[in-house]
Amino acid sequence: MMTPDALKTLIRVADDEGIRFISDEIYHGLDYAVPVETAARLSENAVVINSFSKYFCMTGWRIGWMVVPQALVRPIDRLHGNLAISVPTLSQIAAEAAFEGRAELDAIKHGYEDNRKILIEGLPKAGLSKFLPVDGAFYLYADVSEFSNDSFDFAKRLLQEAHVAATPGCRFRSHRRPAFCALQLRRLDQQI
């Protein structure tokens, strides 16, 4: 996850250089280690994208939101009207009420925190000691390059031989580039 200072610098550079900036904040609310900052505070030019799928646990309702510069509101209104007319009404009604469920949602977040601890402590014992900072969301990106330079192949063998389903990070057969596998923090308590 980016620190607030890193995000601030990046956005300043983007604004100065005429680079458009999109901030994917879908995992906000599921942070465990560093303070979270929104690009909405840092620049009115930034586009923020967020969702009710993760913290709000509404994956299948297919509902999210954007915060956009004023100049993009009408263009997106025109695009969206043509592409989709509107967002499912039932999901919008549910989403508005979901803000009243913060206590339940925070309890679920604490479960992810427990699973995160299990993985951070357990993976090195299983031989996976290098991973990117597990600051937020419910994934852990582990460097598997000690075992394979192809994360697809590694994920396939992990599933076939150990019956652990993980997602390959990227498919570069390069010795310079670490191969990553994404492991997620859900339901670990029941499984490990």
Binding site: I49, S51, W65, H80, L83, V87
Partner: peptide, 13 residues
Amino acid sequence: IVTTGSSAGFILA
């Protein structure tokens, strides 16, 4: 702007 998940947000953006 409300979207059909962040997926639609990315397409629109």
